[in-house]
Simulated assay, not measured.
Amino acid sequence: MKKVVVIIGAFLIFTSCEDVVDVDLPETEPRLIVDGLLRVDKSQEFIDVRIAMRETSNFFEDNPPTQAESAVIAYGIPNEFGEFDSLAFSSLAEEEPGTGIYVPDPNFSSDQRIRTQSAEPGTVFILQISHRDKSYFAQTEYAPTVPIDNLEQGDDILFNEDETEVIVTLTDNPDHTNFYVFDFGFGNFQALDDRFFMGQQFAFSYFYDNELEPGQQIRVSILGADQDFHNYIDLLVEQTMNNGGVFETPVATVRGNVFDITGLDNIDIFDNVERPNDYALGYFAVVQEFSRNLTIQ
């Protein structure tokens, strides 16, 4: 009899594991996502303008591409009063139908590409998007940077033996406070500022937590940044380092500089001080980039 009770008990335990738990997920209105990081290579004639647009979806689903009614980049140098005496424009069009990738319109009556010579310190770029009867606005100033002095592989470890260390060396510009964003590939970014090494040469280590194979080539880039873009990337990195899982409460909503200005008649309040829930996700930035390649030993 005892054996029968044990068997029945075990059966109940294992069958109970098959119960399906239905979780009521909140229904949220899709939100526009703008990936507008434009990297400027001064050795090229034109800026590689590629802006990806997606929409947020429900939990556990990919964010699908979306189409804008219009997308335009305006750029120029403001005067001492912050006003533009003249602006140049680049009209964007979807590169391929359904991709959500917007590039200078090749079918426009004139060349819509932006020359790299237009990206100079003080140049302000403005992105304007019309999407699902809403208007979005983002403004950024071109951010130059310094080249990478040296990139080499190290042999230290941080947590485990599978890590790969790379050592990056740069020389900071002493003329003003600088902010940097490093792209280590594989979706890995790192924000850095010069508060402790202003005007000096500085070297730091970055550890890849996935094991890299000998002979594998990696590409490391340094990007210019202002303080807002630096803080945005820093918060993104902090969020992605959170191992609490999809149900973990996030540290903060990572909001960028793309604002919903629908119905506003005063562009001076485009930052939505009185409309905290009206915004898009993502960021628009125009930054100088220097890159180096390294072959893993």
Rank of each mutant, 00 (worst) to 15 (best):
D162S: 01
D162R: 06
D162F: 10
E163N: 06
T164Q: 07
T164V: 08
E165T: 02
E165G: 05
V166T: 04
I167R: 06
I167N: 04
I167M: 05
I167Q: 09
I167W: 00
V168K: 00
V168C: 03
V168Q: 05
V168I: 15
V168N: 03
V168G: 02
T169P: 05
T169D: 07
T169F: 07
T169H: 07
L170S: 00
L170I: 14
L170F: 06
T171C: 12
T171I: 12
D172I: 07
D172W: 05
D172H: 01
N173L: 14
N173K: 04
P174C: 12
P174Y: 10
D175I: 11
D175K: 12
H176N: 15
H176Y: 14
H176E: 15
T177A: 09
T177R: 07
T177H: 10
N178W: 05
N178M: 11
N178L: 04
F179R: 11
F179M: 08
F179E: 13
Y180H: 09
V181Q: 09
F182K: 00
F182T: 01
F182R: 03
F182D: 06
D183C: 06
D183I: 12
F184D: 03
F184C: 09
F184L: 14
F184R: 06
F184K: 06
F184A: 00
G185F: 09
G185L: 07
G185D: 01
F186E: 09
F186N: 02
F186V: 02
F186R: 10
G187H: 05
G187T: 10
N188S: 01
N188R: 11
F189D: 02
F189R: 11
F189K: 11
F189I: 05
F189Q: 10
F189Y: 15
Q190Y: 11
Q190E: 08
Q190C: 02
Q190S: 13
A191S: 15
L192D: 08
L192E: 09
L192S: 01
D193F: 09
D193T: 10
D193P: 06
D194Q: 13
R195D: 14
R195A: 14
R195F: 14
F196Y: 15
F196P: 03
F197C: 10
F197A: 02
F197I: 09
F197K: 03
M198C: 00
M198I: 08
M198E: 11
G199I: 13
G199H: 13
G199E: 11
G199V: 13
